[in-house]
Design a protein around this nucleic acid. Structure first.
Length: 257
DNA sequence: AAAGTCCCCAACCGCTTAGTC
DNA sequence: AGACTAAGCGGTTGGGGACTT
């Protein structure tokens, strides 16, 4: 017999959230902060299970979520990270604080995977180009570095260590132009301005800088010396602007999937 | 204009992990 | 150490809008 559904209680509502429910949830979190999700439906009177409340908050209502099209730089970063980390969307999302893991996952499944498959097919019979060979080498090196890093137990933080940022960090919160946080005008007063409106045209390097320098970076639980990986990842990602990784991957085929 | 098909993404399901007793 | 619970995560689904015929 299988595990019973978590939300099989009679009276637990499913399906799309209404604006009224959003307001109720956001108002509660505004007052109490995110967390202790089990108590949220009880204290708010929402006819939703705790998991549904948490997902609604993290995937849609949370301030700082950027909606709309992904930029080329974001695409490049996702492609790089997916090649490195696989389908670990939550880990990938820590490098794109304005995007949720769900968004990244959806974008990968609906856009990037198809694009890459298409161009891989188009270039299936072509020999590997210089760039592709370099990318494959880079990936191998990065994987080695990652494995090395992860194999170190109880590694003490060093100057070369980084702490992987978490999307749940308050420091990564920013005002959103589109989402339901509009309902909370005035609430965002305490949000760090530098992360507000990190628009598409703005350099993700500022994010990288924030990632590597901000002392308030939250952790996924481990601090690992990923400097090599970080340098490789970000240096390579943003070289050449529009001529960067993704453009090349589209033109030349990635060959790693 | 209507019907059919495609595509996107919000939300759900169920498994895993972490924390507590 | 093991049981239990809550939270986190990734895979999948289905409603509805966009597009095509």
């Amino acid at each position: 017999m299988g595990r019973p559904p978590c939300c099989d209680k009679i009276g637990v509502k499913k399906g799309p959230w209404t604006p009224e429910e959003d307001i109720t949830l956001v108002s509660y979190i505004q007052e109490h902060g995110p967390g202790n999700w089990k108590s949220v439906p009880i204290k708010t009177g929402l006819l939703r299970c705790s998991k549904s409340c948490r997902l609604r908050w993290t995937n849609y209502l949370r301030p700082g979520i950027k909606r709309g099209n992904f930029t080329d730089q974001e695409e490049k970063l996702i492609i790089h990270l997916q090649a490195l980390l696989g389908n670990r969307w939550a880990a990938i999302a820590t490098y794109l604080p304005e995007r949720t893991d769900n968004d990244i996952k959806n974008y990968w499944n609906t856009h990037l995977k198809k694009k890459l498959q298409k161009h891989e097919a188009n270039n299936a019979n072509k020999s590997k180009g210089q760039w592709e060979r370099r990318l494959q080498t880079d990936i191998n090196l990065a994987k080695q570095a990652l494995q090395q890093a992860l194999s170190l137990d109880n590694t003490k933080p060093t100057n070369n260590s980084i702490t992987i940022p978490s999307s749940s960090s308050s420091s990564t919160y920013a005002s959103s132009t589109e989402n339901i946080s509009k309902l909370l005008e005035g609430w965002m007063g305490s949000v760090k301005p530098s992360s507000v409106g990190l628009a598409n045209s703005e350099s993700t390097e500022s994010l990288v800088s924030e990632v590597s320098e901000t002392e308030s970076k939250p952790s996924l639980g481990d601090q690992v010396p990923l400097a090599i990986l970080e340098n490789w990842l970000f240096d390579d990602s943003f070289v050449g602007g529009s001529e960067g990784l993704f453009g090349l991957s589209i033109e030349n085929g990635c060959g790693m999937y």
